[in-house]
Amino acid sequence: MSSDRIAAAFARAASERRAALVAYLTAYDGGFEHSLSCLLAAIDAGADVIELGVPFSDPSADGPTICAAMVRAREHGATLTHVLSLLAQLRAQRDTPVVLFGYANPLLRRGATRFADDARAAGADGVLVVDLPPESAAILREPVRAAGLHWIGLVAPTTSAARCELVARGASGFLYAITRAGTTGTALAEADSDEDAALRRQLALVRAATRLPVVAGFGVRTPEHVARLAPHAEGVVVGSALVEAALAGPSVLGASVRALREATAR
């Protein structure tokens, strides 16, 4: 696998006794220049891994914040070709691993093999597709892996131990554990609630199913949230909160990322 940028990022975080901070931003939100400035700001403020959202017309697994970001990105003309150009520009300037995060149709429309090759050429390290569960994933997963990219697995609060193993078998790079049933931006369980306990059990289940790093996400907005999850996962994802911060510009986004990164100690 090429992407040892992903393995290296988790290894570095582990050696610093902290969880990796995974930052999600919707590509092209605010247009090419704004989006590139925000990605650079997030990386320079300490994001260890970037999840780059590929805009889609019908993001049925996303909540209002990311839906609105996708509408803005598409109003700026975002297509998959533009997203890959943005990624190539970013890659020319930084080595931080990037996972393309999106829905199947735009990726398949390009042709699975062509997409995989183009993503690799643009400097992607992995691909995560919301609506390709393991039973339906082979059409894109095999070309993506053949191109030397990681196929990131997704597990949810509804995923059983047996399914965790199924997801883990097809995955590399890391596993993304959704912390709460719902769309992106759903509130995280209250500390010490029953749901919080269920979340910890779920993370333990995922941990038992894989040797890959596990990252936890959905509803993680604040340094307190990051600090709560960091002991239970190798990485923590922040999405909607950063998409909101990016609206106020790269420097506000950078400050948010810095504060989150300081809360990653394990």
């Binding site: 569960p133 039973e135 997704l154 949810a156 509804t158 995923t159 399914r163 959704i178």
Partner: peptide, 12 residues
Amino acid sequence: GGRYVAETLMPV
């Protein structure tokens, strides 16, 4: 046909 849904809904 097939099944192309988010993992949260797959078990459902």
